[in-house]
Amino acid sequence: MADRLTVTMPLALPALIGGFILAFLHSLSLVRRAGHFGLAGGNPHDHHADLGAVSISAAPGYRRGVFSAAALGDDGIDRRAKENSRAARFQHRRRQGRPEALDPLWLGACTGAASGARHSVAVGLFASLDFIESGAVQRLGDAPDLGQFHLEEFFLRLFEYGDTQRAIYNTFKLGILTATIGTLVATLIAYITNRNLFRGARYLTFFALAPLVIPGIVLAVGLFIAYTRPPLVLYGTIWILFVAYLTKEMPIGFSQAESTFKSIHPELEDASRIIGANRLLSLKDVTVPLARVGADRRLVVHLHRGDPGAQRLDSALCASLKGGLRGDLRSPRRKGRSG
């Protein structure tokens, strides 16, 4: 016990304090999400939606609300992302020759299933709301009619409404792009900084981790200012979302990649270089096979953390739902009834 107090605790304390601060900040963001949910419930005209495509943390309240309500929301993914830092330990065990504790494909399948379930819950919630709403909108004085409950508007919005179709397409496009390029960029930066490939390389760490401490709204405004004027005008296009999500998720990908490279002793690379392999071959034959597990996990986490397409899908559903309530987008059956 004395050892724990005098040795273990002082060593673990910085990490514990750091973890506490992160958890605290995270819990604050959850409170904000709950606020959005309340706001969205009370006022369907969500002001945050006005920030449009450049909005990152100030996302539409409906989306946040629904995802907060869904048990398989961001929190689970966040937790998984943190747990993913264990990748280094698995790799360490692997290098020590112990059996691999967690297969990356298995992890990918599980998290993929979780993500699918998460989206299903979100879509299911929207479907339920539509179903209830369709039956609830009845003329005063009419007798209750169970036959009026239907899912016509839901199917209309999901499968026929153009914005939803585009959102579904964006879901996959942005998700896969962000995850792939995010993983590659984070891995590259982590490799450069960890192996100190050129003078000042370590300063890249600052840039990779900066989005972690910069508030989302500040980042959003920064992106807005940067990309609304030449030479690169991205505002109003889907690519600003790509840049935004890539920036925002970079710290997580970077920290995981860094821990992966830290766990691979540089002497393993040196050993191959001194007997004839150049840096690229050394990377291919030694570092990549050892870092592969970590990279797989980073890709999966990026795919779920970024998940930008899902947010677009969500936003589109919210918009269509609001449109439905206001009468802009209603099925012919309901239009006829309300008319």
Binding site: R94, H265, A271, I274, G276
Partner: peptide
């Protein structure tokens, strides 16, 4: 570069590729 020096090295950690 090290790969063009025709040298070999044995490291303290052995650096055996696992």
């Amino acid at each position: 570069p090290p790969e063009r020096r025709n040298m070999s090295m044995i490291f303290q950690s052995y650096a055996i590729w696992p």
